[in-house]
Write a protein that binds this DNA or RNA. Structure first.
Length: 105
DNA sequence: TATTTGACCAAGA
DNA sequence: ATCTTGGCCAAAT
């Protein structure tokens, strides 16, 4: 059975997210901006619900200030995943957005 | 329908 | 640099 889209907004978030390549990250703000909106928080909420768990790389979404942000299954898990994908994270759990930020255009 | 919630962000003290 | 405050928006309750 095909995916049943509850809301368009969330679906757009997921659609954008799957475009983020491995080894890169994006931010809640960038996603919202791409949707012509300022719904940073709504984006975060969408990720938290995360109906499409493994197919949507929600672990590649971080805060605009470079901090990791949150993760439904624990921030620790998120960090490990990112490291596995080649993203270097400093001890303070921060990401160098200059290096790893992916923009949608 | 109204209120609350949240994995946010920017600016101010 | 850290902490607080207010604002922002969609989804869930």
């Amino acid at each position: 059975m095909a995916i049943k889209y509850k809301t368009k907004f969330n679906e757009r978030c997921y659609s954008l997210l799957v475009k983020v390549p491995k080894g890169k990250v994006t931010t809640y703000k960038e996603i919202a901006k791409k949707l012509n909106s300022k719904a940073y928080r709504a984006v975060g909420n969408a990720m938290n619900k995360n109906p499409y768990a493994p197919r949507v790389p929600c672990h590649r979404v971080v805060n605009s200030n470079g901090e990791i942000g949150g993760f439904a299954s624990g921030v620790k898990k998120k960090i490990e995943m990112l490291r596995k994908e080649g993203v270097d994270i400093s001890k303070k759990n921060k990401i160098d957005l200059k290096k790893y930020l992916y923009k949608f255009n």
